[in-house]
Amino acid sequence: MLELLSFGPGGWGDEILRGTGVTVAVASLAFVIGLLFGATAAAAKLSGSLPLRLAADTYTTVVRGVPALLVIWLFFFGGSGMVTWVAGLFGYGGRVELSAFAVGVAAVAVVSGAYAAEVIRGAVQAVPKGQIEAARALGMRRRLILRRVTVPVALRYALPGLGNVWQLTIKDTALVSVTALAELMRMAFVASGATREPFFFYCTAAVIYMAITTLSAAAFRAAERGAERGVRREAGR
């Protein structure tokens, strides 16, 4: 059975491994871009401007309320048209075609960003007021307070939540396989079709996903411990 996973023309080991690489690449890129979306949306939610707040609330409510698969299909069918239209505004006349990779990253990033926005907003709101007041008393300006106090403290609060968002993002990348992007799930699908061993290949995919989620959960726990150095613990642990 295991010779099915050998490398080279006879086995599917190299294809599965490459698929795993694409899965990790899509998930990592989407997570980082999602963090940017999330931070922007969180800033908009916390801003004094009503239109900005409404726009950010609409973004997070709608995207968290519809299936990720629907968002992926929307980007798959509508992404090229949308980009072509925007390019047209800038005077580009031709049609823009998006690669399956770009569609996958964009769609998963939009979903990931909506979840990250809520985590980041919660973390920023949890920064104790006294810390901000202390910084102001030391004569820091808004930008400096943001950089030196709010972001470092909020980051520590946000880490556990962002770990959950990462797990969601990894699992959402599996859905991108519906667009035929050659990531892990798609490779398992192709290998199953060619060998008539679907059970074996989907189990392989499941084990690889488990390894990724377990390892990254451990990495996030280590990061949490790192971020909590120098924090005096009064309760728990």
Binding site: K171, A174, L175, Y202, A206, M210
Partner: peptide, 11 residues
């Protein structure tokens, strides 16, 4: 909880 639902459905 550690694997995508899509894998479970396909399995």
């Amino acid at each position: 909880r550690a694997t995508p639902l899509l894998v479970q459905i396909f399995l």
